[in-house]
Amino acid sequence: MTSSFVRRGQATKNVKFSHPVFDWCKKDKSNESRLISIQNGHLRTVVEAKILLEEFLNGLSNSTSILYLSLEDSAAAKKAAMSARLGQKTNQIIFLDCWSDAYGWNAEDQNPSEEIWRDINDTAGLVSYITEWRKKHPQDAFIVLDHISRLHHHSPADGGLLPLILQSLRQEVSSTHACHVIAFSHTELLSASAASALEYISDAIVRVSLDTTTTSQPLVKTETVLRRRSGKSQVSQELYKRTTDNVRRLVDFELTKASSGEPAKAGKQSDPTANLTFNLKLTDEENKARESVVLPYRHHLNAKEEKKSVIYLDDDDDAFNDEDDDLDI
């Protein structure tokens, strides 16, 4: 998938970004709501995980409706932060601010905004809101929960809201269009049981981390698990790097190489013998001479086949049939 966006004051630039989840969503013809769980594993990868989430949204078609439940920042701030990367696509997203006044402390404010959800503990009300929104947007749609760890923090039941949302969406009759849910989470903030429960109800799991082994610059690694209805799971790893533009807020991920089942290697492979003070390379002639040498342990390959047998010469001293003198004791 090629996602495009407009840089401020610059020409439109195409940045290639692809991910197995995109193909998986495209190929899925069941029109059933799926849960995609994007999981950030560490405090140091918060920014990268957020960019990945934005790349996901950037890759969606213009006809897709998106409802964004902001649980960690105000809708206005989230919109402003996302507009740099998503450009005009931000207008396609409907934001619901579930953070600024999550407990209704500012309920008496003069200018209440419809975009603000004022009772985060009202799970049933939130599900009703989402259901109503879905009825108004019957086409292909995505609902983003950013981030679910905060909901879990307030809800005593592990992953209590997610199953309810999925259940209500699946009850909706939609023969032609699917509404998927993207649940963003910080796994460090979830209890072990909650993290496990979230993975069990997810259809796709994308774990975000940093890879420092491949190059000097840390790459962003995603480990993707696609769980099929048949019970089979497909696991893959993808590596991405950030472009090195001066304006960091507009820098996107750039896919270096994605593979199925194996970690990708970034860029051209470097030659480890390039800067040595001595010569480790061979000329063509030296290579030929090297190959023509028969190594000692390979001599037997050239030896003629002959019949082999074991010859045993009986020795008089052999005491096979002697009786043991000690038996009489």
């Binding site: 405090l43 140091r44 920014v47 957020k50 960019i51 932060a81 533009d245 304006v247 807020r249």
Partner: peptide, 16 residues
């Protein structure tokens, strides 16, 4: 020092 937000400086350096 750990920053969880994207830096906005022209130099594009991360705080950390």
């Amino acid at each position: 020092v750990i920053s969880t937000r994207e830096p906005g400086s022209q130099r594009g350096k991360s705080v950390g």
